[in-house]
Design a protein around this nucleic acid. Structure first.
Lengths: 239, 239
DNA sequence: TGAACTTATAGTATATTTGACTACAAGTTT
DNA sequence: AAACTTGTAGTCAAATATACTATAAGTTCA
């Protein structure tokens, strides 16, 4: 009868007999020691028991899609305020074997140092995988991951989102390695520094690394507020 | 009972009582005489009778989301092979007044000269609106349009998709005006020509415009195949 | 203590790209 | 034939990117 209501409201007819279900699947990125990783969960039961999947879940009735993604991430990682970006909807009719399920993909960038080690995820086991060592995933999740990576590579050059993968305080070398890893390129150190610093985007914390086996580097932080103000003045992040 | 099936398959529990319905809404762009336009439809019945909306419809049971978008566009414009790009899913719980409906937005770029004048759209009236003169739209369609425009502006600089808005044969000035209109900037003619031609992306047709009230310009065409080959060699379109 | 090593940071020189501008050619309109 | 519109070629300075050299500031280990 819901269908009827909608048909009356819109003055259209739906060719549908079954409305599709909608889920969310997240590609959760972490970065540590120069390596990009994603968080996968092992299905503990069901037809895909023992296989690896992107973490996901259902959208509740009264929440927006973004809110649902935030809730799921909170459940899985214990983190609020995760940087999230919707990818798109994936909806091949045969992507899920037992019925029509459309899933909405998300990219999540998290600060791994803030991540709480053991997730409170009951029915599954979660594990970080290096991006180059990700196993086969269930359903169309490998395709979603491909799309996700492509999007991340593009986005990281258009907007200062990479910082979401770094600790609050980071060195320029860490940032450089982040770009090198995500874009799979080698960058010249002096040139990279110059380019980034010239943007006036980073706050020099006047602090140095500690407990490192070499000359300690200056620590910087990224401030969304500064970025916003620069953008208003016409600044356009580009890498 | 579908829910049950899925719960069994995935080993999860859904908090849902009602599965959301899913629709598609398209922002159809056209370009003519230096002006960017979109195609809107007037709701002929229902609660929003007489108001303007993005053209849209339902996803059939056995078709992919992209296929559904293509089918809808065929119905509305008579055109096959339209350039389509999914935007994302829009799903605020209150975006549709009579129930939970998630909609998947699309950008469609069409060659207006190939567009068949009278659409076979029965229950609605369709009309082109200049992008700067678009009226208020129903539901969250104005928001979808905002997102769509932002995306178009970004995409048109990253990939050679603007050609999908031009006739098969076009002049460099038409192309320049396309960029000027979409990006809302003024470009220097000689510089623009140089930049585009240096990419070696366009095929010089060795033909000239006809019936124009000034010196006739050379006609060019864009070939996806050429672009694909250049891309393989490491070429990266950027404007 | 000091040599080897690692990373940070400054500087320089060249190639490439961008942006602003000038000039003129080829047509049409009046 | 003069005025006008658009196409097309070329120039030049400024800004940017790229490749490379040099050196400083620490740690580690013999």
């Amino acid at each position: 009868m819901k269908k009827k209501l909608i048909e009356q409201a819109t003055g259209t007819e739906t060719e549908f007999s079954v409305v599709p279900s909608v889920t969310i699947d997240c590609v959760i990125f972490g970065f540590q020691d120069g390596v990009l990783e994603i968080l996968l969960v092992k299905h503990a039961s069901g037809i895909k028991e023992g296989e690896w999947a992107l973490p996901g879940g259902w959208i509740s009735e009264k929440e927006s899609i973004d809110d649902a993604a935030h809730r799921l991430l909170k459940e899985l990682t214990g983190l609020n305020n995760i940087y999230l970006e919707q990818l798109k909807a994936f909806g091949n009719p045969d992507r899920f074997p037992l019925g029509r399920v459309i899933t909405i993909g998300y990219n999540a960038l998290i600060k791994k140092d803030e991540y709480i080690v053991e997730p409170g995820f009951t029915a599954s086991e979660a594990e970080w995988y290096k991006i180059k060592e990700v196993p086969d995933l269930i359903y169309d999740h490998s395709k979603i991951l491909d799309f996700s990576l492509q999007r991340l590579r593009r986005r990281v050059r258009q907007a200062p989102i990479g910082f979401n993968l770094l600790p609050e305080k980071f060195t320029l070398l860490q940032l450089q390695q982040l770009y090198e890893e995500i874009l799979d390129i080698k960058l010249d150190k002096p040139n990279f520094r110059r380019k980034i610093l010239k943007m006036k985007l980073l706050t020099n914390l006047n602090e140095k690394e500690k407990d490192v086996a070499h000359r300690a580097a200056k620590l910087y932080s990224f401030d969304d507020e500064i970025y916003r103000k620069l953008t208003e003045k016409g600044f356009n992040f580009e890498f």
